[in-house]
Design a protein around this nucleic acid. Structure first.
Lengths: 194, 194
DNA sequence: CTTCGTCATTAACCCCGGTTAATCAGGAGA
DNA sequence: TCTCCTGATTAACCGGGGTTAATGACGAAG
């Protein structure tokens, strides 16, 4: 069973619809193999594909003028990712890079748009996916606004202990919004209390 | 012309559709008058309405255990706001409060859902609105991650000078992620450089 | 085995912003 | 007019995190 089909099944359930012509998507799936450090897409480039991680781990990050990475999200098995701007031909706002050796399944976005234009069920599922993304991002906004770096770190290791093991400390730092040196101090304090 | 109808016209254009039965929405519009300090909805309460500001200015903010406000967004004339969780009967993640005496036009979300179930055009327009929200929130996430409080303030006064005039300094502080005392120091430095 | 590169760790120094508290300005209401 | 309340401003103190740099750990490549 492919990760894309798993994800579509979950989306059907969430949106309360049954999706027709799923085989169209199934045939369009392109597996992509990435070694650590390779990119699914890069900031500034258009990239009209939706990815779902089959195996491995990737990070999505913004790069600033100094070349520093500020991490938007991690994607491990079953987690989808894409840049909405890049889907519609605009330059991607961020880069997607493999942390571990990974395989993602990507689907050309135009295939999804074509189904959405033809079937109300697909249109509704697409809208549901957008709404879910917006909800996740509002929560992230809240966390970044309200929580200190120390609180963000503590929450991450408590809520995602398995992921925290797989992510290099410097990347976790970029996700929390501090430098690697800064996070190391936080981790040290955290260890002393546990 | 109502603000809701203006917003729907803009959404039609963005989504590339023509929306049928708009008069259903028009009839469902409920104007809401708010004096400064009054709420459109409150954190923790369900609130199944989409609002659009007709006149005035509101803030949407998260409240933490200490009672501190962390501001998610401001909404002035023509700007829509709602909490996605609250639309579907869950507790709202944040509060919406009037800064100035305001009038908003609100539409029961079930009316929009009903139209979306009946017409593909409405389904598409709804999805487009969700996608727009997600894009705005990703940009906000990027700003909060990458920019210092000083940079956030400078961008706000340059990009939204009219809004910056109308917003009390303490609220701008909550939006940028610092305390009122902290922002005041930033503003002082900013004035000395200009 | 040796070298190289990346990441983790720690120290030293500094600055920004949090915290508390005092003062001031201005509008609302008695 | 006097009082009260809210918001803006400033000072003093302090702590967290940025910055730089040095050291260590470890796996990959030679």
């Amino acid at each position: 069973m492919s990760s894309v089909l798993d994800a579509l099944a979950a989306l059907e359930k969430r949106a309360g619809v049954s999706l027709p012509d799923i085989e169209v998507i199934e045939r369009a799936i392109e597996p992509v193999e990435l070694r650590p450090g390779e990119f699914a897409f890069r900031q500034g480039e258009p990239h009209p594909y939706v990815h779902i991680v089959h195996t491995g781990l990737l990070k999505q990050y913004f790069t600033d003028q100094d070349g520093s990475e500020w991490i938007k999200s991690f994607s491990a098995e079953q987690v989808p990712f894409a840049c909405l701007e890049a889907l519609s031909g605009l330059p991607a706002l961020f880069t997607s890079e493999a942390i571990e050796a990974s395989v993602t399944e990507r689907v050309p976005f135009r295939q999804i748009l074509a189904l959405a234009d033809r079937h109300a069920q697909w249109q509704k599922a697409l809208g549901t996916a957008y709404a879910l993304l917006a909800r996740i991002k509002v929560r992230r906004e809240r966390d970044l606004l309200m929580l200190t770096a120390e609180q963000l770190h503590a929450r991450f290791v408590v809520e995602s202990p398995a992921l925290a093991e797989r992510i290099p400390q410097k990347d976790l730092a970029g996700f929390i919004g501090v430098t690697p040196v800064g996070l190391n101090r936080i981790v040290k304090r955290y260890r002393e209390k546990h």
